[in-house]
Design a protein around this nucleic acid. Structure first.
Lengths: 222, 222
DNA sequence: GCTTATACATAGCACCGCTATGGCATACTG
DNA sequence: CAGTATGCCATAGCGGTGCTATGTATAAGC
């Protein structure tokens, strides 16, 4: 009946438009029947390919983690590991605030199961590595990189999710991001003057990188 | 037909059992028909008293904010404002982790509307006041108390919500809570040795206060 | 070429939030 | 005190949801 556009695996079309619906209208806008209608198939397709809406939503979360991982991987490691770390945090904040519904689907729709936790912690490894480089470079005091990364991640996630809950306006959120980042990194042992220079470099890279990261973002949307 | 137990305002019974269902089984367990059945009334009662499930859920959020506010108000202001602030943060963490589904309903089910934001920011004022006392007492460097409180809140919320999403095990979360608190307060200008003493006092108060806060918590459940 | 298995369509189930309507008790009014 | 008006709740029904049992057609294996 339907023209079957290229027939490129129904599974991909389902996941793609599902992620698009979630990103555009929120998790509540995604509906089995609507998804089937929009893709031009029947509701059964979702069950043959995923098993149900729960698994579909889990795949969407994985897609979100993949995009987040791509955005984080797009920040290049330079000779200034602290600036790298700062830019990484900014990339995280940007990812969450530009795709709020996807971020919500990842962290707030849960509770996350074991598979999700694995996918989430994979991207978290990039944060740990950034902290480790700061330690190895002598900028941070010797410490467990995972502890530092955890603190940074909690701060980032706290600011992002408070903004997404409309409990922090965007300007206050970004201000808190800057201040908390500086405070944390100071406490991690970085020298105030070095930190100031790294912060300036990071801000300059952020200014230059807005288009670059935007490109990566659109690329990762395939 | 039904015995109408004391007839104590159906509205109260609805809100109470609704909050109980959410706290016990999560937001997904709350259903209009089930709630009516469990209270022993009809689905219409929800609409006469609240206007719909949306408003009911909003009242549940307010109930959660009220309990959180009560838990926070239960920490007494002593001569050590930094210890007070630390205990306040611990109380926040405890509130979120002991009633995870209620905490989720407050911050993750949203997006929060203007009325919710007001209720949430009311309890946030206690955090601002605690920061202000630390500044006035000369423990923190002169600063905008709201900025400091925002950073502390974001950190707390980040840790709590990451734990609730099963992305941080409880032990790592409490460790991050301790470390981040110390790091932030150090950055806020507190002297390391004074901070160490306040932290010891706070830990002692927490140890003593576990039963007290638990009592307050059960009290606030009426 | 027949069989088998896979992918999708159809129809129906139980449940959801919500609303139109009616009954009934109370409160108000002349 | 009679009559009316008002608020609270029960009933029944609508369109929607996720999910499943069943049928069907296409593709794969021998």
């Amino acid at each position: 009946m339907s023209p079957k556009p290229a027939d490129a695996h129904v599974r991909t079309a389902l996941l793609e438009t599902a992620a698009h619906i979630v990103a555009a209208e929120g998790s509540g806008g995604l509906t089995l029947r609507r998804l089937a209608r929009e893709v031009g198939t029947s509701t059964m397709a979702v069950y043959t390919h995923f098993g149900g809406m729960t698994e579909l939503r889990r795949e969407i979360r994985h897609e979100g983690f993949a995009r987040l991982g791509a955005d984080l991987a797009a920040v290049e490691a330079t000779g200034d590991p602290v600036a790298d770390f700062l830019v990484l945090g900014w990339a995280y904040y940007t990812n969450g605030t530009t795709d709020p519904d996807l971020y919500r689907a990842m962290f707030m729709d849960g509770p996350v199961d074991a598979r999700d936790a694995g996918a989430g912690l994979d991207t978290f490894e990039q944060c740990v590595a950034a902290a480790q480089r700061c330690i190895d470079g002598g900028r941070f005091d010797p410490a467990d990189a995972l502890d530092l990364a955890t603190q940074a991640w909690a701060m980032l996630h706290g600011i992002v999710s408070l903004q997404l809950a409309h409990l922090l306006p965007a300007d206050q959120a970004s201000a808190a991001l800057l201040a908390s980042g500086r405070n944390l990194f100071r406490a991690f042992g970085d020298d105030p003057r070095s930190l100031g220079r790294s912060l300036a470099r990071a801000q300059e890279r952020i200014g230059r990188g807005i288009e670059a990261i935007a490109n990566v973002a659109t690329d990762s949307r395939r």
